[in-house]
Amino acid sequence: MNKVIEVNHLTKSYGHHTVVHDVNFSLEAGKIYGLLGRNGAGKTTVMKMITAQLFPTSGEIKVFGENLYENRSVLNQVCFIKESQKYPDIFRIADVLDLCSSFFPNWDREYADSLIEDFRLPVKRRIKKLSRGMLSSVGIVVGLASRAPLTIFDEPYLGLDAVARSIFYDRLLEDYGTHPRTIILSTHLIDEVSKMLEHVLVIDDGRLMINEEAEAIRRRAFSVAGPSKKVDAFTVGRETLSREAIGGMAQAIVMGDLNSKTRSQAKELGLEINPVSMQQLIIHLTNHNSQRKAAINQ
């Protein structure tokens, strides 16, 4: 497979404070990746390093097989949409679009115009007069219409309502279908994007904790609920992420594939089995606790 990004032993420290610890991964061409994790976990630092906006303390990064720094031919292939992109104060939306057309080789002006309409953006208005949501929409228009072979959206939707986010997801999937490229979505709205992701990276505390197909993550855990004693009987010898009890009832999140044998065991005990969403699983995994960490490293 064609590697778009290869990262080896990537580390970033500020003095004695290390924010990214020895991270290794590679991304293949034409997939939608999710880069997930809590605020402050190091996601943005990693994205800034793979887009040459920040130097690593140590480690190696190759994008499209080349080194990044001062390498315009690679940087033109990359579009990075940040949470709070800064533009010169005098710029109107139209100026931003003009600049993009000269920077991104695959820029599609017509497509940008149609997106501007979808998001109801006033092209002649100055950037500094835009609302927070409009500013986020400008970033989304740029990210989609650049059609860059590597497009990164870092929490692109500050101030965007559910309708606008849904338009973003629709347009993203449509355009990705006709113009496949590598997309990285970094967000904490995991439930909203999880079904669009093909592969997921989870960063916790500066370390890469999960690097797996989205479908495989969904099969990592399930929950059982029922009378406390029966839940405990079921969880004996099983890796348990959490256990909550109310009255005589308990619910536990258990690691492992929900195969038919497990299912029938739970059924015999009269326990209710439910799936655990990607968001729930990641919340439990990144909710700091050494016991949980042990469960992941199994």
């Binding site: 997939k31 939608i32 997801y169 629709d170 999937l173 279908g177 079904k195 992701l197 093909e198 479908e215």
Partner: peptide
Amino acid sequence: STNQFASFYQINPAT
């Protein structure tokens, strides 16, 4: 098409 399913259900086209 796969892309139509992907858009309709908001899922990854590969899925």
